[in-house]
Simulated scan of single mutants.
Amino acid sequence: MIDLPAAFDLFADRMMRVIYFDMQRYFVAAGLFTIALLVFRSWAQRKRIQNRRAARKDYTREIASSLHTSFIFALTTFLTLALREVGLVKLKIETFTIVTVAWQLVLMIVAHDAYFYWMHRALHHRRLFRTTHLHHHKSRTPTPWTAYSFSSWEAVTEALFIPLFMLATSTMGFAMTGLAVFLFLWHMIVRNVIGHLGVELYPAGWVDNRWVGWWNTTTHHDLHHSSGNTNFGLYFTWWDRWMGTEHPRYREEFRKVTARTRKAMREKESAGGAAPA
């Protein structure tokens, strides 16, 4: 016979742990980047992508909905752990090699980039957008706190990647390592926050370099928020290039932002012009 009070206590304890983990990732990543933008304010001012500024109500909405998203993400984390308990998901916690962690991390990132592109593009369909994705696009001018600002429906579709991926790899006969999943989750939130900084973090020439030009910049995702129906990718530009959904002025806008210098900013301010924001 199941001891219901003990089972409930176990569920509550594990649930609180995963909620804490998801909220911690969000607040650490968004908080540290926010502090960095304040500390390096002069540099950040030159590298701002949009003229618009997020208002206080935007920050309030983003943080509130992100707390809600963290709870939904925690539920899917708990679901994944439950699937492991019943043997449907293979997850190795104790033994692993660095090589195994490395290739599994790369596999998970590449798979998530593909999942995100097609899921994201589907949410922009006119029959789904208002119900699922409109809430996220209320942040026309993204901030680090926009990263988890989703409606409940979008949060569910975002979060489903982990259990679906784990079920797929387990069905194929190999177990993911706990460290690879842990590193992936941190990579995901850091890249997500970078995409919503509102300030171009990457250096001039990045988009024109064949070795790194396929790696998404802040401008890439910022254009998605400001223009709407282009640049659906999360980590890489591959899918947008292959499917013809990359913003036609992406590289031009990136070059424009990264070309700004302190001297040019001072000259414009002294001439009476407003500093580009």
Rank of each mutant, 00 (worst) to 15 (best):
Q45F: 04
D22P: 13
A155G: 10
L38D: 03
G198C: 08
G31C: 09
L128K: 08
G195M: 03
W145D: 01
W215T: 04
T218A: 13
H136S: 05
A102Q: 05
N216L: 08
F150K: 03
T100Q: 08
H112A: 09
V181N: 01
I109A: 08
R130I: 02
A74E: 03
H125Y: 15
T76S: 06
A277D: 08
N192T: 14
L197P: 00
M188V: 10
H135N: 14
I19C: 12
H68S: 14
A275Q: 10
T157F: 08
T219W: 02
V190Q: 06
A204N: 13
L75D: 00
V18N: 04
D22Q: 15
V101H: 08
A74V: 08
I93V: 11
N216V: 09
L91P: 00
M23H: 10
R126I: 11
I19R: 03
F96Q: 05
N216S: 15
A12T: 04
P276C: 05
I72H: 07
V190L: 10
Y117E: 05
V190C: 07
A55C: 07
D113N: 13
L32H: 06
A54L: 09
D3F: 14
L83D: 04
G198F: 05
T77K: 00
F73W: 00
Y202F: 10
L179T: 06
R17I: 03
V28R: 04
A12G: 01
F33T: 01
V106D: 07
H224L: 04
L4W: 14
G273R: 14
A111W: 06
T132R: 00
A155S: 12
L4G: 03
T60C: 11
N192C: 13
E94C: 11
F254D: 01
V99M: 07
R260I: 04
F184S: 01
P144M: 10
P163I: 00
L185T: 08
R84C: 12
S139H: 03
H187G: 11
A122N: 12
L105M: 09
S270V: 08
V99Q: 09
F96H: 05
H137N: 09
R255Y: 07
H247C: 03
A271K: 14
G213S: 11
G195S: 10
P163E: 02
P276M: 05
A271Y: 14
M15I: 08
K268N: 05
K268T: 00
P276Q: 01
G87P: 11
L37M: 11
V28C: 12
F33I: 03
D9N: 09
R140V: 14
W206N: 02
T143C: 05
A175S: 06
H68N: 14
I72Q: 04
R210L: 12
M265E: 15
V207Y: 01
V199Y: 02
A168K: 06
T217A: 03
T177Q: 04
R262D: 14
H187M: 14
M188T: 10
L81R: 04
R14W: 08
S66M: 02
K138C: 13
L107R: 01
V257G: 02
M172H: 08
G178S: 13
T261E: 15
F182C: 06
V207M: 12
G272E: 05
L105F: 15
M15F: 15
G205W: 07
